Amino acid sequence: MDSPPIRKIIHVDMDAFYASVEQRDDPALRGKPVAVGYPARRGVVAAASYEARAFGVRSALPSVTALRRCPELVFVPPRFDVYRAVSRQVHGVFAEFTDLIEPLALDEAYLDVTDNRAGLPTAWVTGKAIRARILEETGLTASAGVSYNKFLAKMASGHRKPDGQFAIMPDQGEAFMAALPVTRFHGVGPKTAEKMHAAGIMTGADLKTWSIEDLSRRFGSSGPWYYGLARGQDHRRVNPNRERKSSGSETTFDEDHTDAGRIEAGVLAMADEVWAWCEKTGARGRTVMVKIKWADFQQSTRSQSLASLVDSRAKLHEASLGLIRSVLPAQKGVRLVGVTMSNFASRDPTLAEEQPLILESDVP
């Protein structure tokens, strides 16, 4: 039987999207360290310009920390209606080249250009053409990764940022992964990386020495996925109908807390990170969940489903605080808190009445 054709995947990622839009629209901001967000005590950075990133300012960083790292930082309030409008322009450019577009956020997407609608000689040339059209249409730069699967295209897009492009060819995938530290694997967070390091897995080459059975025993259902990554394999298709089920963020405190004010501040900071994603994507949900990990590593969750969408930061704050206060005062130390929004849906006035607070059972 004939082998299936090698897919041609491009991951396009706008460069410092929110901050770049602000610098584009206000020439006085160009060349300056810019943060999109509010300099409030409990605010977080939604986006940072490359000038700000040079000082270690990143998205989701607390505003007070960002100002300590960069006293000259200029805060600009977010204009999500403008970002969404620019995102529609960018996606309009994508549609000129393919129907297979999987948005990840306002500022990035996977494109499958295997069908070659534009009639260009290679996916590399297609990527350059897409970036040129984005610049022409919006005045903004984008970076692109070109490869034969989604994971490698995503890894490649960050290789020559900003305003760059990088390709990983089918005969280069395994070697690329072999040299890559596991800390740089997209989707491998600090805890998983720590677990891999404890097992002696520092790079893709180390990972490749493990059998699929051993990886499954060590990492559960993620084992086969890591086995494939070590070999440059990712069989996921670009899905134009991809829907995100939830958005959450959590933080581990430097020390265990029983003080209600500190615990609530942590919950509010995580709610702000979730709300930043909601504003970035335009998503709104009805269910809010708070996660608590105690000093003895037991976990608890509290959730509530509302009759209407959580359509403001204040509403998310209110729901999150109500949930965390259901376990306060804390009878033992709290080491971690998290906030998740789910049950995304369109606004519908015919929905059922608000559901009461759900106190889910503790999970050891």
Score class of each variant (00 low, 15 high):
Gly43Tyr: 07
Tyr50Thr: 05
Ala52Pro: 03
Pro39Glu: 10
Tyr50Arg: 01
Arg42Trp: 10
Ala35Gln: 08
Ala47Asn: 07
Val57Gly: 05
Glu51Val: 01
Ser49Thr: 08
Ala47Asp: 11
Gly43Trp: 03
Val36Leu: 03
Pro33Thr: 03
Arg42His: 15
Val57Thr: 05
Ala48Trp: 00
Arg53Ile: 00
Ala40Arg: 15
Val44Leu: 04
Gly43Thr: 11
Lys32His: 15
Gly56Pro: 08
Ser49Gln: 09
Ala46Val: 01
Glu51Phe: 02
Leu61Met: 15
Ala35Gly: 13
Gly43Phe: 11
Pro39Arg: 11
Gly31Leu: 11
Ala46Cys: 14
Arg42Ser: 11
Ala54Arg: 15
Arg53Leu: 12
Val34Leu: 05
Gly56Lys: 00
Val44Phe: 02
Ala60Pro: 07
Val34His: 04
Ala48Met: 02
Gly56His: 09
Tyr50Phe: 13
Phe55Pro: 05
Arg30Gln: 15
Ala35Trp: 03
Val57Ser: 09
Pro33Trp: 13
Arg53Gly: 05
Val34Trp: 02
Arg42Met: 15
Arg42Lys: 14
Ala35Lys: 02
Val57Ile: 13
Val44Cys: 05
Val34Pro: 00
Val57His: 12
Arg42Tyr: 12
Ala60Asp: 07
Ala35Thr: 01
Ala60Cys: 12
Ala60Lys: 11
Tyr50Asn: 04
Arg53Ala: 06
Gly37Glu: 06
Gly31Phe: 14
Ala60Ile: 03
Val36Lys: 04
Val36Gly: 01
Lys32Asp: 06
Ala46Gly: 10
Pro33Tyr: 10
Glu51His: 02
Val44Ala: 05
Gly56Ser: 04
Ser59Glu: 01
Ala46Lys: 00
Phe55Gly: 06
Val44Pro: 07
Ala46Gln: 08
Arg42Ala: 11
Pro33Phe: 05
Pro39Asn: 13
Ala48Cys: 07
Arg53Tyr: 10
Phe55Gln: 02
Gly37Tyr: 01
Ala48Leu: 04
Val44Tyr: 00
Ala60Val: 15
Ala46Phe: 04
Phe55Trp: 14
Ala60Gln: 05
Val36Gln: 06
Pro62Trp: 11
Pro39Thr: 06
Ala54Tyr: 04
Ala52Gly: 02
Arg30Leu: 12
Ala54His: 06
Ala54Thr: 09
Phe55Glu: 07
Gly56Leu: 01
Gly31Asn: 10
Pro39Cys: 08
Ala47Thr: 15
Arg30Thr: 15
Glu51Lys: 04
Tyr50Ile: 00
Pro62Ile: 11
Ala47Tyr: 00
Ala52His: 00
Arg58Trp: 13
Val36Thr: 12
Gly43Cys: 14
Gly31Pro: 11
Pro62Val: 11
Gly37Phe: 09
Pro62Arg: 08
Val45Trp: 01
Arg41Thr: 13
Phe55Ile: 02
Lys32Gln: 15
Val45Gly: 03
Ala48Phe: 05
Arg30Met: 06
Ala54Cys: 03
Gly43Arg: 12
Pro62Gly: 12
